[in-house]
Computed example of a mutant assay.
Amino acid sequence: MKKLHLILVALFFCVVGFSRNQVDTISVFSTKMKKEIRNVVIVPENYNVKKRYPVVYLLHGYSDNYAKWINTVPSIKALANKHQFILVCPDGGYSSWYMDSPIDSTYQYESFITKDLLSYIDTHYSTIAERSQRAITGLSMGGHGALYIAIRNKDLFANAGSMSGGVDLRSSTKLFDIAKRIGNIETNATEWDNRSVINMVNSLKNDELNLIIDCGVSDIFYQINAALHRRLMNLGINHDYIERPGEHDWSYWTNSIQYQLLFFERNFEKAKKK
């Protein structure tokens, strides 16, 4: 009986170690905001701790939360299976723009993602903990946030994307709570300039980041995305740029995420061969 008990215990730990729910909701403590923040993690259905997986951080838009992607586009579970990625959907607050606010200590979401969450994911999941196997993308506010974080943290991310991103904060000076995060533009113009992705790309060197930018031609942010594309072209920065019929809505993003993940997979594979 004792031998049978030991066998059953071993089998139990084997099952625990090698299988888990495909979709987890986890709480991770923010050291700067001093609170627990919820996040969704999606693993491939055949997730196995003996294997290591690339990770894509997938950011939500203004006024949404960590569960918006999985609730609105449940097909991303199938995409995690198809590409063999771990997808992480952080909570970015109602209107953080994924920045560390210089005027509001309760909005420090860049630090949360790059320090607390990234460390937690690499510790608790079977990841390939290398920048070349890590990507970040998002929609709208999250599109700006993904590029903003990647440009400022090139040691952590080699791949970044944006879907309908608000890539020039100055186009929305009275909207989306941006002034609550960095002050009004009349007295804090430098903050608005320096934190707008369309200006931040001036600091990039070619091929420092693998970039994919995607926006519908009827989107409220189309003009600023087209301007970002022209800026990158003028700077000689390689990137994928997609524009096609579409608006600022979930129909567009449900389609767009497929191209973004394919782009990341190709670059993950390319990096493995180097």
Rank of each mutant, 00 (worst) to 15 (best):
Ser140Arg: 08
Asn48Lys: 05
Ser101Asp: 12
Ser119Gly: 13
Met163Asp: 10
Val55Met: 09
Pro44Phe: 04
Asp168Ile: 01
Asp91Met: 05
Asn81Phe: 07
Ser164Ala: 15
Tyr66Lys: 03
Met163Leu: 15
Gly145Cys: 00
Ser164Gln: 09
Lys82Cys: 08
Pro74Ala: 01
Ile103Ala: 01
His144Asn: 09
Tyr47Leu: 11
Ile136Thr: 08
Gly93Arg: 01
Phe85Ser: 05
Gly61Ala: 11
Leu118Ser: 06
Ser111Gly: 08
Glu130Ser: 12
Ile76His: 04
Ala78Ile: 12
Gln108Leu: 10
Thr123Glu: 11
Val43Arg: 01
Val56Gly: 01
Ala67Phe: 12
Asn159Phe: 13
Cys89Ser: 10
Ala160Tyr: 12
Ile113Leu: 15
Val55Arg: 01
Tyr62Leu: 13
Lys154Val: 06
Asn159Arg: 14
Ile86Thr: 00
Leu59Ile: 04
Ala135Thr: 07
Tyr125Ser: 04
Gly143Asp: 10
Ile113Met: 08
Ala67Pro: 02
Glu45Gly: 14
Tyr62Gly: 00
Asp155Lys: 14
Val73Thr: 09
Tyr47Ala: 02
Thr137Ile: 11
His124Leu: 06
Ile70Ser: 08
Ser126Ala: 15
Lys115Asp: 15
Lys50Leu: 15
Arg52Asp: 14
Val55His: 00
His144Tyr: 08
Thr173Cys: 02
Lys154Tyr: 06
Asp155Phe: 08
Ala67Ser: 14
Tyr107Gly: 00
Ala158Tyr: 09
Asn153Gly: 11
Ser96Leu: 02
Gly138Trp: 05
Ser119Trp: 03
His60Ala: 05
Glu130Tyr: 12
Ser172Asp: 10
Val43Ser: 06
Leu117Phe: 07
Arg134Pro: 04
His124Tyr: 13
Ala67Cys: 11
Gly138Gln: 02
